[in-house]
Write a protein that binds this DNA or RNA. Sequence first.
DNA 1: CTCACTGAGTTCGATCGTCGAACCCAATGA
DNA 2: TCATTGGGTTCGACGATCGAACTCAGTGAG
Lengths: 150, 150
Amino acid sequence: MRRTRFDDAPCPIARTVDLIGDWWTPIVLREAFRGRRRFDEFQQALSLSRSVLTQRLARLVDEGLLVRRLYEERPPRHEYVLTEKGRAFYPVLAAMWRWGSDWLWEEGSEPPVELYDRESGRPVRPRLVDENTGKPIDVREVRVGARREA
Amino acid sequence: MRRTRFDDAPCPIARTVDLIGDWWTPIVLREAFRGRRRFDEFQQALSLSRSVLTQRLARLVDEGLLVRRLYEERPPRHEYVLTEKGRAFYPVLAAMWRWGSDWLWEEGSEPPVELYDRESGRPVRPRLVDENTGKPIDVREVRVGARREA
DNA sequence: CTCACTGAGTTCGATCGTCGAACCCAATGA
DNA sequence: TCATTGGGTTCGACGATCGAACTCAGTGAG
């Protein structure tokens, strides 16, 4: 049986999951944010099979998160660079980073990978707030719905 | 070949992806945040196969995002309820929601599912900021590293 | 007492996705 | 001429996902 698709679901979460809901795609994106661009850079950094990497990059290019760009004529060499849409995805990874580092580490085994402000060098702790009010988003204070009811 | 596991990777993103990096787990969590608790509630809402739902719920219970609780003695009935760890996952879904609604919708076809503040009824737009400074997180201003270098 | 029904799963076989290894090809450099 | 490198594609084995069918305990109707 084929995988159930969510790409036309009415829910933005479902559509997003359809796109990145596998084990490699988010990691490939993470590497893109780290500045990797070339096929072999990705492949060596992640040690995933070439066929899977090819598929993931193609999907990301297809969906407009990456562009495949010729950066050398002879011999022809390509690189995969984040688009605006791709860069906009960063908060999702940052939210995962935050949750993972808060909840998936045993005491005493600090996560070796952290985020720092490039300028100040100080650690950055991503947190989700409401853009309008600036207040942190608490599950119990948010309602999901098709439209405002009252 | 077995799927490559990331659950002991040094990167919080990788570990998080190992846990929720499939198509159903994030959607099951979304439904949990919507207040679903019983097996059949999930199954009917998502129309996924029972076997997959069983596996997903078991994994989420295993990892401590949900608890399986007896809420009725005779006949014995169970429900799956979010734990603190599970509730803490909300920002990841909210970030996906935001990105999906910003980037995966054509003009003119508004996402029918939105987020509202329970009290004010006003729409909520999740945004990621640095907890320390309150500044929005921009990719180019954040560096990933094992430890601070200077 | 029997039958149908419900909640909560497990089992089954088919199909799809993932994996590493091997192969391919063009351009370059020794 | 031959090996190497970048950037893939092809292949076959195996693991994951699917819907459908089955299970089992309790319950309520007749």
